[in-house]
């Protein structure tokens, strides 16, 4: 009975566990179950790798920064009335 409950817990909350959003007690139950259950162990390993690989995608895909282009557009923008009222000079 406990095994079935832990199996369901693992299937339902595996992402909460991987996101660090599961309480300590449930984490322990999930870890314990994944150690014993072949399917849940494989799922947990696979999803751990998936999330790790997704994080690796965040490496920049472009060597040039977009900052100069944004600053150029910004400096072409006419000052808005509230900005003129504040009296700051433009760069």
């Amino acid at each position: 009975m406990r095994d079935r409950l832990d199996h369901r817990l693992t299937q339902r909350h595996v992402f909460d566990y991987l996101d660090g959003e599961l309480g300590e007690r449930r984490q322990r139950r999930l870890r314990g179950h994944a150690d014993l259950c072949r399917d849940c162990g494989a799922t947990l390993r696979t999803l751990t790798i998936l999330l790790w690989e997704l994080r690796e995608l965040s490496a920049p895909e472009r060597e040039m920064s977009v900052v100069p282009g944004v600053l150029r557009r910004l400096r072409q923008e006419p000052a808005l009335p509230w900005q003129l009222r504040c009296g700051h000079s433009r760069p």
């Binding site: 472009r62 910004l74 900005q83 760069p91």
Partner: peptide
């Protein structure tokens, strides 16, 4: 917010490339 554009430009320098990566 007080109209200081160089201050906003510093915010651009900090966040533009990150926003670009998301939008891309």
């Amino acid at each position: 917010q007080a109209g200081d554009q160089p201050a906003f430009e510093e915010l651009v320098r900090r966040h533009a490339d990150r926003l670009y990566a998301v939008v891309l």
